[in-house]
Design a binder for these strands. Sequence first.
DNA 1: GTGCACCTATCAGGTGTCTG
DNA 2: CAGACACCTGATAGGTGCAC
Length: 246
Amino acid sequence: MSENLPNKAVFQSYIWTCAKYDFSPYEKRIIYRLIEFAQQWLEGIKIKDHMHKIEPSGCGVNITMPVASILRDEDDHNYAKAKAAFTSLSKKGAEYEDDKIWFYTAIIEHPKIEKGTGIATFHVYDPIWRAALDFTKGFKKYELITAMKFKSVYAMRFYELMSGQAKPLFVPLEGPDGLRERFCLQGKYERVNDFKRYVIDAAKKELDESSPYSFVAKEEKEGKKVIGWTLFPVFFEDREDPALQE
DNA sequence: GTGCACCTATCAGGTGTCTG
DNA sequence: CAGACACCTGATAGGTGCAC
């Protein structure tokens, strides 16, 4: 069991990290909406009006929403851009592999716009939908947007690590639960100092700047060798509910 | 395509520190 | 105190993306 969790986390992280880097503003809006839908689904809020729907299909869900929800505002009737975003998001995907299975899937599939109605539908394949649901379980609404702002991939990973963490957390560097393994950095930053400089310090810097929580890392040594860090959570309460806008 | 600036991962050499 | 090891700073090669 403990063997599947890190991989799952990495799969999720991969999707949302890519979302940060490679997605256009329009594509990001689609992702935000997807997360919103997932959130409402989890909270059991019935989405009743004919413009918004979540309908389970055999292998995922069909999402219906107004095209306007991904456009900048009411006056932005730029359907060409909306279409382009749906198209490109259909071409971007995520890859997953463990010892039993490999698969690749697009983030969204079969986007469709009914002309004259302003309504778009698309399909979300089950693993992506579950990743969205898992994400919303562990994160509050505005946090995806916060997370998407990070420049460093590792800021995102530490953000996940520290999410909901109230007590100091010891993380080893090496080993199955070690940071190197969890962050997929086998063979990289072999020197502890380089690891600290480009992974831990870089992530901490970004979290300190813009995240509602961060950490202080205390080196733990075995003899002269650094074997890991104890992360003491730091909260910035004034950032808990920022008026984040899209 | 070409040149340029920037960025990242890695390494070398000097410095610090622990232990016998 | 000396040797061995680990740490830190800065340099560098190679890659990437951007403007022209």
